[in-house]
Write a protein that binds this DNA or RNA. Structure first.
Lengths: 169, 169
DNA sequence: AAAATATGTCAACATTGCTGACGTAATCGG
DNA sequence: CCGATTACGTCAGCAATGTTGACATATTTT
């Protein structure tokens, strides 16, 4: 009788971190809620936001690259991309070298909206940082990066322009 | 020409925190992805998960209380709740004092699934914590709590059983 | 010229949110 | 006791965003 140490599958793994699980849920909900409100005034949803965001951050992105970042199907992407192009928030041009590719760019209007959305969310981060020591920002980034799938971390670090040398001294 | 310092509405607010914005997005996506995979094997989605989770954490919860936590409509809730009850993951009984209320409880099967889901997500947190000093957990909780809407923070702290005295000494 | 690649599009479907309307059971207030 | 309120269930319809599968078109590669 291993005095309570017996376990079925997935038993005895220690107490679940209910607090972190719930905090992550509520924090993310409020975080995306900021953008949702502004997007509504344009008739856009979260899917539009994600597309606009990544195109604005990486002008010249191709469809295939965007699909790889968002991990959705081309049909899902096309639905929202078509609207963003129709409403002149994004422009698509034939690829420079390979004309089969389509390179995506934000228009002036698109850049403005992308920036306004980013600033809204930045404000929430800024306010959160106020209550956390001076290293709050670095700690938060380390935590979030550590939550990303290990095999995706490299790609994410590249995306956000984080050199791997940026881990703590 | 006011030499670049001119600003329209929402200009000049400093550089957006693109890194944090994107990290939060990817971290949350991978976090919920863990549960999604297990839920699929039961034919459930995220909506079912949230209901099961909060009922399991607060047995005896009423419909109204659950609606207030999830902030969805009773029609949306009812759709998934009905399935959870039909498949015997949750039970509803008439309220003890007021029989108009319905009190929700997980069955043994429901508790098991809720715990397995929580443990899956806990494993991701645990692994993330391994790479972050000894205070990683507290820092992460502080950060996430600070990201929650201020007027919701009290309710969330209660929910996760966090005394307000738990802020850092 | 044929094959592979990058993209667009059509159709159908699932999940999960919403609104509005209406029904029923239980409780409360006078 | 009776009417109003409360708590919940349900029906119908719609919207956003994800999915699969099939097929078309343009371009590049082989």
């Amino acid at each position: 009788m291993k005095s309570g140490a017996v376990s079925g599958p997935s038993r005895d793994a220690g107490a679940p971190f209910y607090d972190l699980i719930e905090l992550f849920f509520f924090a993310y909900r409020d975080f995306v809620g900021d953008a949702d409100r502004l997007l509504e005034t344009y008739g856009f949803g979260r899917a539009h936001h994600r597309v606009l965001h990544f195109v604005s951050r990486q002008p010249g992105l191709t469809i295939a690259e965007l699909l790889d970042i968002l991990k959705i199907t081309k049909q899902s992407l096309n639905r929202v991309l078509k609207e963003l192009i129709a409403k002149s928030f994004i422009e698509a041009r034939a690829g420079a070298q390979d004309r089969r590719h389509r390179q995506l760019f934000t228009t002036a209007k698109g850049s403005r909206l992308a920036r306004d959305l980013a600033l809204l969310q930045t404000r929430r981060f800024s306010r959160a940082m106020e209550g956390l020591g001076p290293e709050g920002r670095e700690r938060a980034m380390e935590f979030l990066l550590a939550m990303v799938d290990p095999h995706e971390r490299g790609r994410v670090m590249e995306l956000i322009g984080m050199k791997s040398a940026e881990r703590r001294s």
